[in-house]
Design a protein around this nucleic acid. Structure first.
Lengths: 344, 344
DNA sequence: TTGTATGCGTTATCAA
DNA sequence: TTGATAACGCATACAA
């Protein structure tokens, strides 16, 4: 009979370890949590027993007793959008630094799934939740708060100050994009984005319009091309509609509400033989990795994505551990990164 | 004094609910778990108390008592690669169907982070773990098994049959790609991919070589262009090297080990003014959404990504619940999707 | 330095 | 139909 041929019937507990090592249960616990308080001899005896049994601490029991968990979670809208995975990466690093694990939950833009995840996380009593919600005003968020789980809203805001949040000044971002296009001499510009239930989309358009008005350009030369979402496919479809406009009235530049739209638009244009920026200049938003690496490198509005995630994690930890915590709404400043898609 | 102005001091427990409703603790538990065994009158009284206190079941305690959790986890290599998020989506749906939650853990290709997550998940006693490991032969995986947590390897395989796994026949995939290029008349082809520590890369190259040999073409006309990873950036760099070869000896087609490489290559070519497929035909691998939507739609080898995730989740659940479970190594068949990048 | 005892919140068994 | 009680595995206060 070789070693370890028996099946695992039940995971071993501190009790099993104590029995095998010939010590008490409390001593095993001390080896685990305050190894300094136990003599080297017994400690190694206990550690041998742990190894032999393949002992793994039961986190449920630990958490029940300790009263707090060692995990954070980020509930995100779209795992395929590099913007969110970059935010997640920033949060992940902050969590790692604090000795916590970060679990990602993909709501896929569906309120029901978001609600299920939130409920589960509250039941799990995680240390804190980061969430980019489908709707920042939905009451599910208040329910989480009511149950005492710290929650930070990421990349969205709420006017009532009920939560910490981290976001970027999207009105300013929209302004930067359009100011850039105006400087480049464009007098007919399209704004591509939607649906306008998304606050970001509204804000970026608002900033765009403000810059447009400031430049003294007429309202009807800023065309809005609505989309049903912020995806590559929607960008291609918007491109078709845009190129359907007669050349005389067609905008000479487009400001897209995010980079995925811009990439879709870019692809549609090169399929139909149009050139960028010759036939159409393009400004995107988010400055995702693919923006710089696109066939025509994309001018884009950069957001400090990792920073967003990092600060969100820090805020949620502060809320979890600091009794004097007060909610903060952080607003970061975006930055325009000019590339070939707006330079002929 | 308005309602709910008091701070949350401690989440309420069944005990609190019982006290407020004027019933025993066991009755509250019955309302939670076997509502039929309690009279409508007391049930609604208990439910009112729950609402008033904002009671939420403590999952740690539930799990400690019940002995099993309600969560699955998928530890993935690269959250930015749509391949993995599609696999995750398939797993998510299977989990949802089984009434479980799926947590995503991003190892970011780092063995240490993978190990941390795995250890944490085992401590949490999750129902099962799906993992696309940095190294399928690493002993961390065996440690998980030893501790009794079901584990399924995704998109990788191990020869020893110690785990369930779901994967795609990559040798066949490589063969399909090169057979296609040979049919299109190419006699100088580049294989772009690396590092060859990745089993996939080796397999796809092996299939490519087999097809090449079967076609009776000379070894030295299948050039290997090694890369340090499977990313867009690496694809661009490979493109530069490829275009540095004199036109007389330069391959007329490239088979990339994944679509991100192919997209990077495509971008590099259009930057340098080369045309696809005129100057270089391209075949990618994975058929991610962006492949079809690229500036030149990409011929690619499609893998059943969601199916992979779905079956992996089913296998891990079988291992978790079926005492007669036997390990299975599922191998799916890839399929070539021909698009413009190989048709002039 | 080590052992003993208690309780975290829940579920389930059993008795009333 | 409802109530009392034990147990899950662990960490800690306290006693030895």
């Amino acid at each position: 009979m070789g070693p370890e041929v028996w099946a695992v019937v039940r995971a071993s507990s501190v009790k099993d370890v104590a029995a095998l090592a010939g010590v008490s249960l409390g001593t095993v616990s001390n080896v685990l949590n305050r190894p300094d308080r136990v003599s080297p001899a017994t400690r190694s005896r206990v550690e041998d027993a742990m190894r032999e049994l393949g002992f793994v601490r039961n986190e449920s029991a630990r958490q029940l007793r300790a009263g707090h968990s060692r995990t954070l979670a980020y509930v995100l809208l779209d795992a395929r959008n590099p913007f969110f995975t970059d935010v997640a990466e920033g949060a992940e690093r902050a969590a790692e630094a604090a000795g916590l694990s970060l679990f990602l939950c993909h709501s896929d833009n569906r309120a029901s799934r978001e609600g299920d995840y939130l409920a589960h996380l509250v039941e799990q009593r995680v240390q804190g939740i980061l969430v980019t919600p489908v709707d920042p005003h939905a009451t599910v968020l208040d329910d989480v708060r009511r149950n005492g789980t710290p929650l930070v809203i990421v990349d969205r805001t709420r006017d009532d100050g009920a939560f910490c949040s981290v976001a970027v000044d999207d009105v300013l971002g929209g302004r930067l994009a359009v100011e850039h296009l105006v400087e480049r001499g464009h007098t007919r510009v399209a704004f591509i984005g939607g649906p306008d239930t998304i606050g970001q989309v509204r804000d970026r358009l608002e900033g765009a319009r403000a810059a447009w008005a400031d430049a003294g350009l007429p309202d009807d030369q800023l065309t809005v091309v609505p989309t049903d979402g912020l995806t590559v496919v929607e960008g291609r479809s918007a491109g078709e509609r845009l190129m359907g406009i007669g050349t005389r009235r067609r905008p000479t530049a487009a400001f897209c509400a995010n980079d995925l739209l811009a990439l879709g638009l870019l692809q549609q244009l090169s399929t139909s033989g149009a050139t960028v920026p010759g036939d159409l200049a393009i400004v995107g938003y988010d400055d995702i990795e693919y923006a710089a690496a696109a066939a025509v490198p994309l001018t884009s509005v950069r957001q400090p994505r990792q920073e967003l995630g990092r600060r969100a994690a820090e805020l949620v930890l502060d809320e979890a551990t600091n009794p004097d915590h007060v909610h903060e709404q952080l607003v970061f400043t975006p930055e325009l990164v000019a590339r070939r898609s707006t330079f002929s």
